[in-house]
């Protein structure tokens, strides 16, 4: 059964990195639900949040294959780690004098923001996890959604733990850190059979 999984990867901020990652997903037949890239706390690195469909084995392979890319500095599967995940959506909703009040009621319920107003439409900004954004979209559909854009998921682990890549020059230590990052699936999941 397919499920949604969240992977955080730090990559060198170099031309072609996105193509390498995309090429790998295409070649191995992995299914990307969403992929977001942007700056992170360390200059020179970009942070990717990748949501993939797949079973435990496939997601484990995604992480291992991703890590083989030279420009990928770290890969962490945070699906089973307590985390905060957010997505932003902009919805252009049909709204006239006739029903604007109703639309604004829904905006309020979702604690969304109106970021543009026109006599026949509003742009609503919805922020939340995927479920909340889905629910908002569903509610606004009754008024007519003229246009929609969603950012895809960004995520961060809760507490003091970070997904920052190890800043280690010693190769053996780096190897150990990377090995610890890979294989964070629950006990019994592939690739390691219980004995």
């Amino acid at each position: 059964m397919a499920s949604r999984n969240t992977i955080v990867a730090h990559v060198e901020d170099r031309p072609g990195v996105l193509a390498r990652v995309a090429s790998l997903f295409r070649r191995r037949g992995f299914n990307i639900e969403s992929l977001t890239v942007g700056h992170c706390e360390e200059p020179g690195l970009s942070r990717m949040t990748i949501v993939v469909d797949g079973d435990d084995h496939q997601v484990d392979q995604v992480c291992r294959q991703l890590f083989k890319l030279i420009d990928v500095v770290s890969v962490q599967d945070i699906t089973y780690v307590p985390m905060v995940d957010r997505e932003l959506a902009l919805l252009k909703v049909s709204a006239t004098n006739f029903n604007r009040r109703e639309v604004l009621d829904v905006v309020e319920v979702f604690r969304a923001d109106v970021v543009d107003v026109h006599s026949e439409a509003l742009i609503v900004q919805v922020l939340g996890d995927e479920g909340k954004v889905n629910a908002a979209v569903e509610m606004f559909e009754q008024f007519g959604i003229l246009e929609m854009v969603r950012t895809g998921r960004v995520a961060m682990v809760r507490g003091t733990e970070t997904t920052k890549p190890p800043a280690i020059s010693d190769s053996q230590q780096a190897a150990a850190a990377i090995r610890a990052m890979l294989g964070r699936r629950p006990e019994g999941a592939l690739p390691f059979a219980s004995d």
């Binding site: 084995h57 484990d60 392979q61 291992r64 294959q65 890590f67 083989k68 090995r179 890979l182 592939l190 690739p191 390691f192 059979a193 004995d195």
Partner: peptide
């Protein structure tokens, strides 16, 4: 030597990278 090969095609009882 390649961690991505371990468990790719078969369940492995003792992976050694």
């Amino acid at each position: 030597i390649d961690p991505a090969e371990i468990g790719k095609n078969f369940k492995t009882h003792a992976p050694v990278n």
